[in-house]
Simulated assay, not measured.
Amino acid sequence: MYKNAKEVDLFLHFRNNESYYYLQESLDELDKYNTTVGAVSAIPYYRNSANNSTYEISTYVGIVKRTPLDWKITNKTKKIGKYICNQALATETLFSRQGHYYTEKVEAWFTTEIPVSFGPKLYTGLPGLVLEINKNKISITATEINLNPKKGLNITVPNLNKIITQEQANKKWEELAEASKQRRKK
């Protein structure tokens, strides 16, 4: 699956204390995404840095408040585009749709030259914009940065009155996996 995966374009919009990370839903991108389902997640994420909260917006289980990662900043640096970036490492605990927990190492490269605590998906909370994420066989890399957009940015704020915990989301994933297993048996 990873060998046949195609690149997809995802977007991170940020303004003031908010960010929104999402897949641009065009027919071309959806076709690419269909061949990349296991390699990249098109689930949108909303972040409010004022209260250090990140929310995963899943159509399957609901709006999930995610626990921030515990980043360890290293001494390593590298240049991405025109920005000097610092390395940060974390271990992410994930819940499989088969009903068990597992961990993955995450490497982030962030630049303090853009002093916002945003990044793709859950990879936020560092003292600069995250420009690259590496984990397992997946890489997310910023390919274009526009700090002065001519058009207004779309920051989609989810209905925060309907938030569920990560544990509640895991339970819903378990139920969905079990229902899927039962359908396959029939």
Results as ranks from 00 to 15, higher is better:
residue 2 Y to P: 03
residue 4 N to A: 10
residue 7 E to R: 08
residue 8 V to S: 01
residue 12 L to Q: 07
residue 12 L to D: 08
residue 12 L to H: 07
residue 15 R to Q: 15
residue 15 R to S: 12
residue 16 N to D: 15
residue 25 E to P: 02
residue 30 L to R: 14
residue 31 D to N: 13
residue 32 K to P: 00
residue 32 K to M: 10
residue 34 N to Y: 14
residue 36 T to D: 02
residue 38 G to E: 14
residue 40 V to M: 11
residue 43 I to D: 02
residue 45 Y to K: 02
residue 45 Y to V: 11
residue 59 T to F: 03
residue 62 G to M: 01
residue 62 G to R: 05
residue 63 I to C: 09
residue 65 K to Y: 02
residue 66 R to T: 06
residue 67 T to D: 09
residue 68 P to N: 05
residue 70 D to T: 11
residue 72 K to F: 07
residue 74 T to C: 06
residue 77 T to E: 10
residue 81 G to S: 09
residue 81 G to Q: 08
residue 81 G to E: 03
residue 81 G to N: 11
residue 82 K to M: 03
residue 87 Q to R: 12
residue 87 Q to M: 10
residue 91 T to V: 14
residue 92 E to A: 11
residue 97 R to T: 13
residue 97 R to A: 12
residue 101 Y to V: 10
residue 103 T to C: 06
residue 104 E to F: 05
residue 105 K to Q: 14
residue 106 V to T: 09
residue 110 F to H: 00
residue 112 T to F: 00
residue 114 I to R: 01
residue 117 S to Q: 14
residue 117 S to N: 14
residue 118 F to G: 01
residue 120 P to C: 10
residue 123 Y to R: 04
residue 129 L to W: 04
residue 136 N to G: 08
residue 137 K to H: 14
residue 138 I to R: 14
residue 141 T to H: 07
residue 141 T to P: 00
residue 142 A to P: 12
residue 151 K to I: 06
residue 155 I to W: 06
residue 155 I to Y: 08
residue 155 I to A: 04
residue 158 P to R: 03
residue 165 T to D: 01
residue 165 T to G: 03
residue 166 Q to M: 10
residue 172 K to G: 04
residue 179 A to D: 13
residue 181 K to T: 09
residue 182 Q to V: 11
residue 183 R to S: 09
residue 185 K to Q: 12
